[in-house]
Simulated assay, not measured.
Amino acid sequence: MALNLTQEHIDRMKAHGERAYPHEGCGLLVGRFDAVTNEKTLVNLVLLENAWTDDVAADLAAADLATHGQETTPVMTKARRYWIDPQDLFETQRQARQDGLAIIGVYHSHPDAEAVPSGCDRDLAWPSYAYIIVSVRHSIAADLQNWQLDDNHQFQPEPMNIVPASAAKDRMPLLSS
């Protein structure tokens, strides 16, 4: 698979990661899956607030305890974790369907860390989604990488095709977020 997106999409993710620093920023990728070409095309980038709270951390720790018989995830903060509010997810999915689109992935930033998925990122990831991670170092976006889960539930790099903005306007209109 590959992800088609514009430079504007990349610039918006980087800027959002910088604004969220020193916390993780996050958002949803809305677009189309093409089964024929085996590509995803990003149409709309929905930037969201990181909804990570102590309650989310406690819920995940309780799920670890129920699943593994022990807590395996250390207590974290917004500086090392993100959470998409289920209401934001629902609203984005509803709007995407109205527009004939789908959620095709997730974006988030890693403050002062590599643009490489963590174990928690892998544990909470869904197959076929694109997972873009922006590395933000000392409040400046330094790197951006795209990942996808393989059949063994391991992240593998997923290529990104940067579509020129002029071509993107003809083939994939940008929606406001």
Rank of each mutant, 00 (worst) to 15 (best):
A35Y: 09
V43H: 09
A142T: 08
R19G: 05
A96F: 12
D54N: 03
F155C: 09
C26W: 05
A15I: 00
E49K: 13
E91S: 14
N38K: 13
T72Q: 04
D59L: 12
V134P: 03
V36C: 07
V134L: 00
A142Q: 15
P111L: 14
V30F: 02
D34L: 06
A57N: 10
Y129L: 14
P74V: 00
A79E: 04
K78M: 02
E91D: 13
D99S: 02
M76N: 07
S135D: 04
P159C: 10
V134N: 05
P157D: 06
D88H: 06
T41L: 07
H16G: 06
A15D: 03
Q95R: 14
D59N: 11
D121I: 05
L29Y: 01
L28G: 00
A113G: 10
I104D: 01
L89F: 11
Q156L: 08
E24K: 01
H153Y: 12
A125C: 14
D34G: 08
T37F: 04
A115F: 12
L48T: 00
A51N: 01
G100K: 15
E49D: 15
L48A: 04
D54K: 05
V116Q: 12
L60G: 00
L47Q: 04
D151K: 11
W83N: 05
Y21H: 00
D121G: 09
W147E: 07
V136N: 03
R97P: 10
Q98C: 06
N152R: 15
L149K: 08
Q70D: 06
T67C: 01
A58Y: 12
R19V: 03
W126S: 13
R137E: 10
D143G: 08
F155L: 07
S109F: 15
L101K: 04
V56W: 02
R80N: 06
V46K: 08
L149G: 08
H138D: 11
G17I: 02
A130P: 14
Q154W: 14
T67W: 15
N146Y: 04
G25Y: 05
M13V: 01
A79V: 11
I103A: 07
R122M: 13
V106T: 15
V116R: 12
V106L: 11
A142M: 09
S139T: 08
S135I: 03
T92I: 09
A20V: 01
S135E: 00
D99C: 07
P22C: 00
